[in-house]
């Protein structure tokens, strides 16, 4: 009896480990505007293994942010199936943490209250979230600024608050929609380091939308390019980590960059 139970338990654990973080099949999303119907995603299939750092690249208007919003449960699909950790995504969920492109953190909360926002609001005991919140505030380099208001922080520091908050809420999946798009080069580089450090520490599945090829090569295990509503290109990125500026001189990285740019420029050429 005991051996049967433990065998069943082991099988369940193996099954859970084998379940991808995301399993998306036949995804279609349509919007109806006043003049016409827009279909940014049509028949998209995608599997994202657990723990992977996936970057979604794509030209503007090709549906990469729409795909991320569907994965976050913020946009219902018109057709198809989206499973996160084996369960259908029916709406936003604390297990699908998201960092937005624009400043979305509550401006009326101080840094520490912002970072603890999710667990506090969900009624998680303070004894549970307190140490985690302190750890992530420290990890993103905001120790000593716990009492600061967001308006007193720079754009990069506010982004650090958002990153700390999403990690402190402890989702299994982290979704990031061009989070560093508006930041300068040095701030972005520092935030890349912070994000990769936390990703390595927590092993969370991360889906990161960007339009910057170099950012994708620096961060990702795998890059997909969304073109014409589907996955137009799917490549693994197996360069050693940490990846510094020397990657710019690497012939293999250059070849990958050229290949990605070729696919990214194709829709623009077609439009012109």
């Amino acid at each position: 009896m005991t051996s049967t139970t433990s065998a069943a338990g082991a099988s369940a654990v193996e099954s859970a480990a084998a379940t991808p973080a995301f399993h998306i099949t036949g995804l279609e999303v349509s919007f109806r505007t006043r003049e016409r119907t827009v279909t940014p995603l049509r028949g998209l299939d995608l599997d994202v293994p657990r723990g992977q750092f996936l970057c979604i690249l794509g030209p503007s208007g090709q549906g990469k942010s729409t795909l991320l919003r569907v994965m976050a449960g913020l946009q219902p699909p018109t057709a198809g199936e989206v499973l996160a950790e084996g369960r259908a995504v029916t709406g936003p969920d604390a297990n699908l943490g998201m960092v937005f492109q624009q400043d979305a953190i509550p401006q009326w909360l101080r840094v520490r209250d912002n970072v603890s926002f999710g667990p506090r609001m969900r009624g998680v005991p303070a004894s549970e979230w307190g140490p985690r919140v302190d750890h992530f505030i420290e990890a993103v380099g905001l120790a000593g600024r716990e009492r600061a208001w967001p308006k007193e922080l720079s754009g990069g520091m506010r982004k650090r608050v958002a990153i700390a908050a999403v990690f402190a809420n402890d989702p299994d999946i982290l979704l990031m929609d061009e989070p560093f798009g508006s930041l300068d080069y040095f701030t972005r580089a520092a935030l890349h380091e912070t994000l990769l450090k936390l990703w390595a520490e927590t092993a969370k599945t991360t889906v990161f939308v960007t339009h910057d090829v170099d950012e994708a090569i620096k961060l990702a295990d795998r890059i997909i390019v969304v073109t014409d509503g589907r996955v137009g290109l799917d490549v693994s990125v197996d360069f050693d980590r940490p990846r510094g500026d020397e990657l710019r001189m690497d012939p293999r990285a250059d070849e990958l960059r050229q290949g990605l740019l070729e696919v990214l420029q194709a829709p623009a050429r077609m439009q012109s």
Binding site: G73, L74, G97, M98, A104, F117, G118, A165
Partner: peptide, 13 residues
């Protein structure tokens, strides 16, 4: 801004 409420939704509110 809708993103503020969406952010809260993804935090589990």
């Amino acid at each position: 801004p809708p993103s503020s409420e969406e952010y809260a939704a993804t935090q589990g509110l």
